[in-house]
Design a protein around this nucleic acid. Sequence first.
DNA 1: CTTCCTGCAAAGGATTTGCAACGGC
DNA 2: GCCGTTGCAAATCCTTTGCAGGAAG
Lengths: 141, 141
Amino acid sequence: LEGIIERVEKDLRECGKKVSKTRRKVMEVFFSCGRHVSVEDLYMEVKKKHPEIGYATVYRTLKVLEELGYAVSLDVGDGSTKFETAFSQHHDHLVCTSCGTILEFHEPEIERLQERVARKYHFIVESHTLHLFGTCEKCQG
Amino acid sequence: LEGIIERVEKDLRECGKKVSKTRRKVMEVFFSCGRHVSVEDLYMEVKKKHPEIGYATVYRTLKVLEELGYAVSLDVGDGSTKFETAFSQHHDHLVCTSCGTILEFHEPEIERLQERVARKYHFIVESHTLHLFGTCEKCQG
DNA sequence: CTTCCTGCAAAGGATTTGCAACGGC
DNA sequence: GCCGTTGCAAATCCTTTGCAGGAAG
């Protein structure tokens, strides 16, 4: 966790960006709070410890983290963009349309099939998103 | 094409909704213009033939078509929602991040794998979206 | 005639930006 | 000091809504 932030700060420096106290605070909260947060979620979490930090800064910090590849934005169709940390292997998402919970899964076979499709269409894949929307176990009661 | 509109109008009546001239005009343009249009695209296309029709009506018509299942909204990550007609079988999308073109493909094998994953997590899938982002053949030049 | 639909303008919500002050390096 | 960063408020973008008039059933 401390190591992660050091890595990010190294990258920041290498990009000519600066390592400010504010930025560090936002990153600390981001990397230690739950895996899928909206900007609003993160802002409120940041506020608890650092009320002086503004909404725009949270946006700007997430944008920088996304550029550096440390955050990934998800569109789960509920109107607000969610972000997750980008340290685990690639995975896809099960989005519960009832409670909003997001589960992750990894299915190498699906990835392989995607590559095959891409080749068929002479398409070079940079990234992909696979979201399964439905009802999670808890909400099926 | 004329048949499609008749089907929609039948559904509209059954839902207690009305078949107005304006609605028919928007639908005609929607069902005959390209497969993936943003609201803006459709609005401009509609404007060409029917300058009196407003932006809000285009939104409202698309919303109705979506409710009835005749339109599907796509989020391709470029800020604006795109819509496509919902008459073909289910398919996924190859989105070119260079020119914005959207290609469709259908891979039953992927669908089958998704079902398997869902079962593993005791998740009931209602729908899914799979987008492969990258560079299309034309843009690779 | 009752209910739904329309166009316009205004409102909303999410995200971005301009700017003067501030803080790394 | 120079240049990136911050907080605030204002601006912007996309989408929805309120309303008074108009059209469909």
